[in-house]
Design a protein around this nucleic acid. Structure first.
Lengths: 227, 227
DNA sequence: TAAATATTTAACAAATCTGTAACATTACTC
DNA sequence: GAGTAATGTTACAGATTTGTTAAATATTTA
């Protein structure tokens, strides 16, 4: 499962280069060149790592960093700051704000890549905890049990896996292809419509009398765990 | 049973903060800001985990780590290194020395906590008590006897080992591969279906008239001790 | 509103997984 | 060394899960 990197950078050439190279390495890349937009995008998408340019037209990188590190839901996403030469003194400030690493422009891509890998290695493993909840739905990965409103629910293996995956990032919409890749496995040959069927089965399983439905269909896009 | 964490840190504010937060989480905390002292203290007290600052006035963290990892009696205590920014290159060296994890200062406490928990979970199961029970099932490791409802049960060696392992974390689901690794031993070459057969035998052995079955099958995943 | 497009769901056959008996082999015991 | 116990493998029946299809619904578009 490849990591998702969010790049905040307003210099087009640099952004293009970064995106191209990171994708070539197999990372999923999203980006924004606008501070405000980046902030909300990151909170919504919950990437695995953020590359954050120091100098943005509307909102400084340090502010973004501050906001992110104050938000319980995203504070654990590691941030690598990209600072230009003259801003060296601010580094300390930046690091105190909570950025996990920084690099000075112009930087070498291999070095950046090394830092990214090292950070991801450290952070990725503990993102998956033994228990996950979304509203009144709970999954206990240790005993592999699922509960809705404290009541145990039995799921088939695929449904369990599907839910296990969806609950990692509630509200995030996944395409059928993404679900196939992550839940089924990449080499497997399965029709994408099959996902529909399993979603239906999962829906039926986790559905409880008098509770909201928990899986949203986004037409022509995919599904998400949400109500 | 709460874990005992030993903190080696010479920066007072950080030490205070760590101690306070860890205690709030229910851990027992000891500490030292002095390398030599820490070393002997750890050997004497045998904490469940060590938080080790990289930079100490008298003895570098890496040295302490080395000494601890060379000592048969304490080498199994997990160590989390706390490194400051400038020492990045040493990280590799630190990890090679045998530290189980490291974090770069400034670090987020929730993340540290997550790492601590994950490490303790990995290490704690190995700390076995003389007696373990799950519901009406009791295993006495000293005499190697097993009881169900006060009545002694005879198990074959493999069945005993299997139960011995399963009862360490009741309800946790283990895959056949995990069971093979822990109960049989890693180098051994045994079909994973063999586990099934031994589970069946164990079931038959611990089964008693009018009592619940105690081993759960989780389809396509494995088995757990549970009813 | 009809046509086009997309999703839900039931039904069913195929595939997968598990439990256990039977047997072969190995390891122990006396 | 014969006899006994423990272990691992295999085969097969039964149970469960899965993928596919097709028809029924729902939603969007023209």
């Amino acid at each position: 499962m490849s990591a998702h990197i969010f790049v905040v950078e307003d210099e087009k050439p640099i952004l293009t280069l970064l995106t191209y190279n990171l994708q070539k390495e197999g990372y999923k890349v999203s980006s924004s060149s606008n501070g405000e937009e980046a902030l909300s995008s990151i909170k919504e998408k919950k990437p695995d790592l953020v590359l954050l340019d120091w100098m943005l037209p509307d909102l400084s990188g340090i502010k973004i960093c501050q906001y992110l590190k104050q938000d319980e839901k995203v504070k654990n996403i590691p941030i690598i700051m990209l600072t230009a030469k003259g801003e060296e003194e601010d580094k300390v400030k930046g690091l105190n704000t909570g950025a996990e690493d920084y690099m000075t422009k112009p930087f070498s891509f291999p070095e950046l890549l090394a830092r990214i890998k090292s950070l991801l290695k450290r952070v990725k493993p503990n993102i998956v905890s033994e228990e996950a909840t979304y509203l009144d739905l709970k999954i206990d990965r240790e005993s592999m049990k699922v509960f809705r409103k404290e009541k145990e629910i039995t799921l088939g293996p695929k449904e369990y896996k599907l839910l296990d995956f969806l609950i990692k990032q509630p509200k995030r919409v996944y395409s059928r292809e993404q679900l196939l890749e992550h839940v089924w496995g990449d080499d497997i040959n399965v029709e994408s419509r099959t996902v529909d069927v399993h979603i239906t089965r999962l829906r039926q399983s986790i559905n409880i009398e008098g509770a909201k439905p928990l899986i949203r269909t986004v037409r022509s896009a995919g599904y998400s765990l949400e109500n």
